[in-house]
Write a protein that binds this DNA or RNA. Structure first.
Length: 347
DNA sequence: TCTGGGGTCCTAGGACCC
DNA sequence: TCTGGGGTCCTAGGACCC
């Protein structure tokens, strides 16, 4: 029997959850945003296939979504409902003879030993539909990268297998953006080098790519284009490396005192996270986004308070003190880098 | 045209040390 | 006075993902 990676990806997850409790929305263009009001600052966190037909995309500004699809139903995001649905899905997956690694609310990797991965994929789809009432697509691969790309190509509701044998035939003509780990910036840089397809990137000289993208990142890009990479699926999640909170203001803040109080508030939320998790902070970074979108970060160590929660706010305000708050501010963020857990030293 | 909130990882320059 | 080659830490920025 062979070892396979399956990538299970829920179809239009947040919208599907909304349709479960609002069946009358089925078949309509539906847009779920951070806020339900498309006149306010916020982005699309999920949209139905009917809305996508109008050009609405995840991550798009709500105002732009409304321009593209004025007739869409706009709903506010309800994270608690999505988390409950996610738990149902993950509980269903854990019932299968496989290692299960959650990769966000709406997707998971399965590591399974089987001679019929398609059969397993169909069984997973049926079980998720029966238990949670939701549809998913399943990618099958001999690496995580291939399984991940396969599930995207299988949408909606399909099953697709990608291995070394058919990877380039299927994915080769696609733009590099199709790869898991290549975004719009990297695709644009690749285009300036004349590389416009996955196949072209797979043929690229790793040394030349190292010169252009860095010693590690360059060859890594070529490996991605070949579908290579790890195949391990690990059910245990590593401890978090950071905790953060950020706030975009409904309208820009011109008063530095208000900016300081927003930073203090975010720092207190981070401190509360630290208390819950028992983790220690190493540094605290404050990000200030000036209008329209000019973004800078300053950080400070939390040494004076031994990394405890009480040290977060002073460190955040110290970092903020290094900014000149002479322009309107759109967003502030506070993030704490966590110290490695103080468990038994291993060496 | 306008760009949320929560994260992870990589790069690169300078400081500092041997 | 001019000077190699490595390592690690600190810091800011960038890219990407869900």
């Amino acid at each position: 029997m062979a070892r396979w990676v399956l990538h299970v990806d829920m179809d239009q997850f947040v919208v599907a959850v909304e349709i479960l409790r609002h069946p009358e929305l089925r078949g309509l263009p539906v847009v779920v945003g951070t806020v339900g009001d498309p006149g306010r600052r916020g982005v699309v966190s999920g949209c139905s296939y009917e809305a996508r037909a109008f050009g609405v995309r995840s991550g798009m500004a709500l105002r732009q979504a409304r321009r593209r699809c004025p007739g869409a139903v706009f709903l506010a995001s309800d994270p608690e409902a999505y988390r409950r649905a996610s738990h149902q899905v993950m509980a269903t997956l854990v019932g299968f003879p496989a290692d299960v690694e959650a990769a966000g609310w709406d997707e998971a990797f399965l590591g399974a030993t089987t001679d019929d991965p398609e059969r397993l994929a169909r069984d997973v789809q049926a079980a998720v539909r029966a238990r949670a009432g939701l549809a998913c697509s399943v990618g099958i691969g001999d690496t995580r990268e291939r399984a991940k790309v396969a599930s995207a190509l299988a949408k909606p509701g399909g099953v697709l297998r990608l291995t070394a044998a058919n990877w380039l035939a299927v994915v080769g003509p696609e733009p590099p953006r199709r790869l898991w780990g290549v975004g719009p910036r990297t695709q644009a840089r690749l285009a300036t080098l004349g590389i416009r397809t996955v196949a072209a990137l797979a043929r690229a000289d790793p040394d030349a790519m190292a010169a252009a993208f860095g010693a590690h990142a360059g060859p890594h890009l070529v490996a991605l284009a070949r579908g290579e990479g790890p195949a391990a699926v690990s059910p245990r999640r590593p401890p978090p490396r950071s905790h953060g909170h950020q706030q975009t203001f409904a309208s820009d803040l011109g008063d530095p005192a208000l900016v300081r109080s927003a930073v203090a508030g975010a720092a207190d939320e981070v401190a509360a996270d630290l208390r819950r998790s028992g983790a220690k902070a190493r540094r605290v970074a404050v990000t200030v986004r000036f209008a329209p979108f000019d973004t800078h970060t300053r950080s400070a160590p939390v040494g004076a308070h031994s990394g405890g929660p009480d040290g977060v706010r002073p460190a955040a305000l110290a970092a903020l003190g290094r900014f000149r708050l002479d322009r309107p501010v759109r967003m502030v963020a506070v993030r704490a880098d966590l110290a490695a857990p103080a468990t038994a030293p291993s060496s």
